[in-house]
Design a protein around this nucleic acid. Structure first.
Lengths: 154, 154
DNA sequence: ACTGAAAGACACAGACT
DNA sequence: AGTCTGTGTCTTTCAGT
């Protein structure tokens, strides 16, 4: 593991890019009282080091017929590498599962699942998720409202 | 509520932008066997309709000294509008809380909390979150691994 | 590490089919 | 709804401080 030395200017650039990936290098430079070259070089370095992982467009789930978000806690029967690996391979094949975390507590994993509606979730739950080998028990929490959602880590 | 008619071309554009917001309009056009103008126009429309909410840079939390992610389930004492509003106002002021969902089940809210380490989480838990008015009980789940994470909804 | 200038690529708008 | 063409702006590189 490598230590990344991010100074105040790097952090300022990150803050701006986390809010709006389309901001121009010129604009960032202007706000930091710099020219484009150092800003460009700092961004390039952070991309290369993996500090900036990806640039993405965030889509409104309600406007692409994905109105229902469900958090599903999952416990496995066995906790061997093999059982876990098999579970994760299956998970990765499901486009409805957008996030999967290995968590502490009485469950092993927490999944974020994005579907059109309750009917689609039921289908998915019974036919796909429920058929996944190795699952001991599951518990679904339905999202009734998103009160805060930001990608801003720094 | 308005119905958004997204055709296959719109969805193809969305798929590309969700993977890489920096892709050029020219590149998208080439892949869809179109010229830049219709692609540009479709993107503009989806931005205006709010289908595309935002363009953001995704930052690696481990590389900006935010190594610990915690999901915290929260129950409130009262379920009045006022108590909820007060809670959410407080939540919004905490930069460590990046996501907050109103959920079904035995808890009222689920929070995603991003901090440097367990020490910072403990401080935050005791001094900030624990002092938030109206909370009945809380339960923290620590993230031990991120097995899947994508912004790809369509 | 930064500035300033300059080339090439790009977004974006207009006239047209 | 799309193509083609042009203009201004942007990214990106390079010589210089």
């Amino acid at each position: 593991m490598y230590v990344f030395k991010l100074d105040d200017k790097d952090l300022s650039i990150l803050r701006l890019l986390q809010q709006d990936a389309k901001i121009t290098v010129r604009e960032i430079a202007a706000r930091l009282h710099l020219t484009t070259t150092p800003v460009h070089e700092r961004i390039r370095r952070m991309e290369e080091q993996g500090v900036i992982k990806q640039y993405v467009a965030l889509v409104d789930h309600t406007k692409v017929n994905k109105g229902l978000i469900v958090f599903c806690h999952v416990s496995l029967k066995e906790h061997t590498k093999q059982a876990g690996g098999l579970f994760l391979d299956t998970i990765n094949g499901f486009a409805q599962i957008t996030e999967c975390y290995n968590i502490s507590g009485s469950f092993d994993f927490m999944l974020k699942i994005v579907v059109a509606d309750m009917e689609e979730y039921h289908q998915f739950y019974v036919d796909q998720l429920g058929e996944t080998p190795g699952i001991s028990h599951m518990q679904s929490s339905f999202v009734m409202g998103i009160m805060k959602y930001t990608m801003q880590l720094v």
